[in-house]
Amino acid sequence: MIPRATVHTSAQPKDASDDIDPENPDTALYEKLGELTRFIDKTIKTISQFSAPMSATTEQLPDATTHLRDLRKLTEEGTHKVMQLVETIEDNRKRLYAQLDALERNLTGDNAAAVKAIRNGMAKDDKPLIDIITALSFQDLVAQRVNKLVTIVEEVEHKLLELVVVFGPYTKGAGKDEASKASEMLKQLEASKNTSINQDVADEILKQFGFN
């Protein structure tokens, strides 16, 4: 059995109780609150600095969902095209089988045997043809995964837009009107959570919050 090692590093977080002054517990609490406030302030500043690339990402997300939907449509169209061609081959073969049957009825001996051999040779392709059709069910599985990806991208887009509204430069030092506008935008985002957000809504939010 490997003995459990105890690692001490300078990065290891200290136990909160280490900082508490038993003489004055309020001081320790205020220090912790101050630390937390500084952390939140720093995070907001950092996110604000990143707002431009974040905006660019948000703008590109509807494009990503469009590409995914196109992918689903293209694979669907391609699958139908292949099936249509296989169905045409099958129809032709059906006609050929009927002609061979008619021919065989009027023939005897070696000639009849030759027609039968041709028929048997053709029949060998029956299974591969239906196997081509069933192999195309991959498209359904692709479409299901694309649908899942579209949902994920749309959720990420909602989250990014929420960040743009909450931390965007437009809200920095905002007055009453701007704050209420931000609140309204958040409500709109919340309401559209289970539906896909269209490019116009995304553009409007980005525009109103100072992104072009």
Binding site: E76, H80, I130, D140, A143
Partner: peptide
């Protein structure tokens, strides 16, 4: 019954076969 047109066509082809 299927929401994907390709799957309906595949199932119909198999049933036809």
């Amino acid at each position: 019954v299927d929401d994907m047109s390709t799957m309906r066509r595949i199932v119909k082809n198999i049933l036809k076969q």
